[in-house]
Design a protein around this nucleic acid. Structure first.
Lengths: 186, 186, 186, 186
DNA sequence: GGCTAATCGAGACGGTACGTCCCGTCTTTAG
DNA sequence: CTAAAGACGGGACGTACCGTCTCGATTAGCC
């Protein structure tokens, strides 16, 4: 019978240390100590550091639960607002570390990658928003939603990795470029 | 007097092991052994694993020297061809590992990130190609080149991380979406 | 209500694993698994690994029930025969391990020590045999029985620990030396 | 190039902890910590806990350098004095633990056993003393020295294991019994 | 053309973390 | 109500690498 208390303590400790020190410096021993738990209890339920992070992600312990774009009826501004929200998150001191660590974790662990792809990326609320826009006639019916989703999130990832500071208006330019050609209000 | 032979052996070993095992499992001891070199010789000239990888990148030991898009006079097809070339590279068994490891390395090391951003991304030959297209009148003069560069490479990165298999036509759809609105032939 | 079946299974498993792997590598978990028993059932009734072994000893699960010297009317030859019997036991591959493990267990656990001392050593059938010999006039009345008992068993222990192979005649020489001076037939 | 400082620190720590806590509770990690040394430095040079103890024994860090019987010209009293010296050593609080731990170590490790057998037992100064006595005509020329040595040390071992407190005169009785029949002064 | 200093390979050193095995205690579940 | 099953916090195992530190044994170039 698995102990829910231990599970929560472990995920909490993981999230705390991950945000603080990054994926590379996250250690199972550190998590065990921080959680007040035996190492074996971690190894019993998670095969790897990556799986631990993936589950934190799933539980919303690393990123705000609702990170997707809102729906105010205007896709363009919704997407811009969303990207700027993310930029802001990254601009914070720990935010950049956290974000890059998530990318590192995704690069090294399939679980994290899938979880992240599903939560930030294509399958997610972003796709939902795009579909809504299409239904509302804001976007053409042949809009390549997956590609657009990947372009938007990808640009953010690339900027975060490249340590490129956000420039005013860059989210607007990005959104305009990416959905400009499929937008019906052009 | 620095030994060029040792330097080459070290970088070669790094590139080999990096492509084979990934960034996470790359160890200085492993590189030293593979290169037939004392560990100190590595530490004497490189401060970290990341720096080692960054220099490999610079020397073209990890990625093909000329990875940017060609210039046939048609930006659209040039970009599509370029993305498909990268997709092909990623499709190969070791290619995916290599690519993801590069992302992991970039996430954890500034040097690698800058090098990679400059070689795949915005500052690079990609930007050059876009500028040429603008000059040739293929793209409008207000084209946000940096954002477009980030969107294109970012989409590729996201797909590689998400382990999303390439779909036929997805490169075309991506390019059309991203430069569609600034393309003068629309 | 203590389960006799469990008790027997546990002691049996202990004896088997002890003879097989030795005292040091005997584990409670191993015993529980081998016996098909919960660990708690062991801890409920025995305080330690040593107590487990001690009880096996008491039950005759580790050493032949009747290990003492026989009484044919001739102490000398009875003692020699007895020592040679033990030598034979030790000569067998598992016998040496078993014997040394018993010594190790005795060194680390009082219960085992007392049990073993009482079963091999002074208080035991050996003393009984010596007393009989004294009564029969084979040994002088001032024979220091405890010391003789300790010398005989001790020599065996020392040889077993020192991994000294038995030499023909060494039991005879030992007995002659040890009881020579108190033997009335000299 | 092996560090002599580390070697000494390790053996010293081993001896200290062994005498203090006994063989069973001696841990490599404890020795490493006590010696201020990395674990790997221990594993690099010694294959096991037993080898560590054996080397301590060899270096005289566990037992007084000269533990054998003296030669005053009278074997009997020399042997008695020697046994009483050992009894005294065992009577001390840490002495008993140390002695039993040595036996446990010998039971579980060949190296320790050989070392101990050679240092306390037959091959040792004890045999030397007996030979001298034989040469001096105190003992008969057919004295079975190995057996006598084993009987004397063995009796001590058995008493120590059995936690039998030393009785006044028991060393005298033991010696008289064991060498009584080969002593020429009878 | 020998001297001196820097660099080389090799690898030991004090450490940190790994993932595994058991410990002895505690809790749940099925008979 | 008992006992199997096994999760729990913890300690130690033996291994892999970390980055630093001596070691001789080559090499430089500078006198």
């Amino acid at each position: 019978m698995r102990s829910e208390a231990a599970r929560r303590a472990i995920l909490g400790a993981t999230a705390r240390l991950f945000a603080l020190r990054g994926y590379e410096h996250l250690t199972i021993e550190g998590v065990a100590a921080e959680a007040g738990v035996g190492k074996q209890t971690i190894y019993r339920w998670w095969p790897s550091k990556g799986a631990l992070v993936a589950e934190c992600l799933l539980e919303g312990l690393l990123l705000p639960e609702r990170l997707g774009p809102r729906d105010t009826g205007d896709v363009r501004s919704d997407l811009i607002a969303w990207l700027e929200e993310i930029d802001e998150l990254i601009e914070q001191p720990l935010g950049a570390t956290l974000f890059r660590s998530l990318v590192a974790a995704a690069a090294e662990n399939v679980d994290v990658a899938r979880r992240l792809y599903g939560s930030l990326g294509a399958t997610s609320s972003l796709t939902g928003r795009l579909e809504a826009a299409m239904a509302a006639g804001e976007l053409r019916s042949d809009t390549p939603m997956q590609e657009i989703g990947e372009a938007l999130t990808g640009a953010t990832v690339v900027r975060a990795l490249g340590r490129v500071p956000a420039t005013p208006g860059s989210s607007r330019r990005l959104v305009n470029a990416v959905i400009g050609s499929v937008s019906t209000d052009a």
